[in-house]
Design a binder for these strands. Sequence first.
DNA 1: TAATATGATAAATCAGACATAATAACTGCT
DNA 2: AGCAGTTATTATGTCTGATTTATCATATTA
Lengths: 247, 247
Amino acid sequence: MVESNRSLTQTIVQDLGLAIVCGTYSAGNPFPIEAELCKHYQVSRSILREAVKMLTSKGLLNARPRQGTWVEPEQSWNLLDPDVLRWLLERKFSLNLLAEFTEVRLAIEPQAAALAAERGSEAQVAQIQRAIERMEAAEVGDDDPLLADIAFHVAVLEASGNRFYARLQDLIDTALRISIRLTNQFKGVAVASVADHRKVLDGILARDPERARAASCALISEAMELIQKVQSESGKTGKGESEKTGP
Amino acid sequence: MVESNRSLTQTIVQDLGLAIVCGTYSAGNPFPIEAELCKHYQVSRSILREAVKMLTSKGLLNARPRQGTWVEPEQSWNLLDPDVLRWLLERKFSLNLLAEFTEVRLAIEPQAAALAAERGSEAQVAQIQRAIERMEAAEVGDDDPLLADIAFHVAVLEASGNRFYARLQDLIDTALRISIRLTNQFKGVAVASVADHRKVLDGILARDPERARAASCALISEAMELIQKVQSESGKTGKGESEKTGP
DNA sequence: TAATATGATAAATCAGACATAATAACTGCT
DNA sequence: AGCAGTTATTATGTCTGATTTATCATATTA
């Protein structure tokens, strides 16, 4: 197990969470009982139970006396929990899921851009502008392109003034990191263009919701097409995807 | 405290979770230390710690030795966790938040309807049809209108084939229940019309994504307008909303 | 004054026990 | 043999008390 400065409980949550979404436990290999897991992780029951409870509250596990602890069906998992999404996307590059998450972004981000144009505060809009400047700096090596990209999308979500939209930032952070890691494997993939991002900012600065929406929509659509392209590529080579779609 | 058949831990999670989102604990009234909460709930430390861990995994709490346990800022809460959303919406009818959540629905559900028209399976579409039939039955008192309404929206989300969309069903279930409870207080509020819902189904049956999208958009927009109407009503009477918008 | 030692506090972790729920095994009867 | 009712087993649920560790406030010392 990986050593870390986190607490024992947190370490076990991460380890077990990843193992669960990777399908380590199934009919043939049922989830172990507390005693076994205690022995495996060399921790007390208290610690292990706390970890299991945390995973239970994310919809991954459930338990009953005498029946033991079991992994809940995938439909019960809180996909929108940052931890859960990260574990899911980290498992051997789950392209299908990344595509589905991008569909969420495609629904939300253009709307967020429109709302930002409509009612974003000066400070919030300035934050978007700053992100664009970081992206420009990144083009000449003065900043990290990935972090600048993330900062842009997060700033737009924040400027929407909708608390649910803003809460997607952890998720988008994760998705973008995975997305980059994924698409970088394939050649011919251009880095997200600053020009296209700037169009969103322009729409917001002009306080033109529809222009902002359209620009954002184009932006995410481009990302979506990229993923689909990778999907067909990996389909041909047979590498990458190995998700089961149900019994 | 309310007696129940749930476990002690679950009972405390619900009680503490609701108290936290209601703002019971703040600067003047800091979150109690473990020992005090144990005394208050009359439970052992194990139970209390498990409950605190569950709330920690939902982003509501955090703890450190010597510093104690504290409530995280609202920006850290997992709004998209079904429990958290329910607690939030249940706290004295949080109209602003309900409006924001409806903005999420406005972004997602039309897209889901379009996807359902595009790639929903026969069985999934049949499920939507069945929900419409339930709504019709409810009109003459042969079914529960709220449950039928929920079944419709859930069926559309399921038919979208996007796992993230499908995961919104718990949240929409909660939101619709609160929404009904809320709007019923005000007269002149017509129950969701079956005709408008059927238009979504028609678009999906015709495999016409844009028609389905437009119909769904109209449906949610109507709900949104209703909420805004109630917002202005309660603004006049001063009742209902009492959310703080920041320090 | 600033770096260092000390002490107090609250969570983190451990160990062992008993209670409870759900199932499996068993008994005794017809 | 076949069923009803009892008992035993098993894994989680809950409790208790103790020890360790991280952090902050204070006091001490150079």
